[in-house]
Design a protein around this nucleic acid. Structure first.
Lengths: 110, 110
DNA sequence: TCTATACTTAAGTAGAAACTTAAGTGATGA
DNA sequence: TCATCACTTAAGTTTCTACTTAAGTATAGA
């Protein structure tokens, strides 16, 4: 549906805010309601809802409403995608450094 | 110096933009000058400089000027920190799912 | 020395982001 | 039934972002 790129935009954008990371942090320990997520944050409930909307739009979090309570939980696949994007670039760079070091070692004796 | 949190703010914020991710992607293959980074991007050079400034402020990229050429390169530690923040939360969640599955398996026979 | 190259600085603008308050809606429990 | 709880919607404000163009500065090469 979307450019893979756009998915990462949304994920990293979502993780860029400390309140949203606090929410993800909380959810990593298990599902929580909107008010539970809001409790430690120094902001209005609508503000928390907006953060939640950003997290859901990014795919990092899903939620379901039962009765009057909305329960939120982590979507590990989306976390995984962001994590792997970084890991791949870092691995590429580090492999490069290894090859460079190996080259220097090999030519040192010449 | 900074809240660890603020470091992650800057890193994820930096990675949230596709042009900046393209720059990191390019740099993962080895150092590059500002103009090399700019070439594939459809924007003015000052715009690229501003993206570079964001990347440097986040610690993801370092640069050094020699003569009139500024050479940029990846800072793998900063990438690593962002990567691990995600990995830890995901691991926590997945361990929770495992315990839950185990619990369900164990009680299934009752 | 003169000109082109490779950035760099400054200033301005449109649109997005992160809140706020006020006013709902629909479930729950006494 | 009716107050309370748990959100939800709407609208407005302030701040930040991602650009732009125009005008520099310093180095390199002819």
């Amino acid at each position: 549906m979307f450019r893979q790129d756009a998915v990462l935009d949304l994920a990293f954008q979502a993780l860029a805010d400390p309140s949203r990371r606090a929410m993800v942090d909380r959810l990593a320990q298990g599902p929580a309601s909107v008010s539970e997520l809001a409790k430690p944050l120094a902001m209005s409930l609508p503000a928390v809802m907006q953060h939640l909307a950003v997290l859901e739009a990014s795919g990092l979090v899903k939620s379901r409403k039962v009765g009057r309570v909305r329960t939120c939980s982590i979507e590990p696949h989306a976390l995984s995608r962001a994590e792997h994007w970084i890991a791949e670039r870092r691995a590429l760079w580090e492999r490069r450094l290894d090859r460079l070091g190996q080259f220097l070692d090999e030519t040192k004796g010449d």
